[in-house]
């Protein structure tokens, strides 16, 4: 199942986005998805594909590991 309500993956998307002073909409436009998708990834409802995670990291100028971590 692709959906994910209990986070298998923790993310610091919100923090990284705030550091770049970027809205969800602005990030969504740069990575080619909708704002809703960014919101659902940020809230841990969905786990992005490797390609999307790499795009996010590229736009937010950090590594994928800095954006997403496995829970302890």
């Amino acid at each position: 199942m692709s959906t994910n309500d209990d986070p298998r993956l923790l993310n610091k998307l919100k923090v990284r986005r705030a550091m770049k002073d970027m809205t969800q909409d602005a990030l969504a436009k740069q990575i080619g998805v909708t704002r809703k998708s960014v919101n659902s990834i940020e809230n841990g409802h969905f786990v992005p594909s490797t390609e999307l995670a790499l795009k996010m990291a590229q736009v937010l100028e950090c590594t994928v590991e800095e954006l997403f971590q496995l829970p302890d």
């Binding site: 692709s2 959906t3 080619g32 998805v33 909708t34 998708s37 659902s40 969905f46 992005p48 390609e51």
Partner: peptide
């Protein structure tokens, strides 16, 4: 513009499949 975003949205595609 929004349609172009929707068409490339992998999360939406997953939702549609599910």
């Amino acid at each position: 513009a929004y349609r172009a975003q929707l068409e490339g949205d992998e999360i939406l595609q997953r939702i549609q499949k599910e």
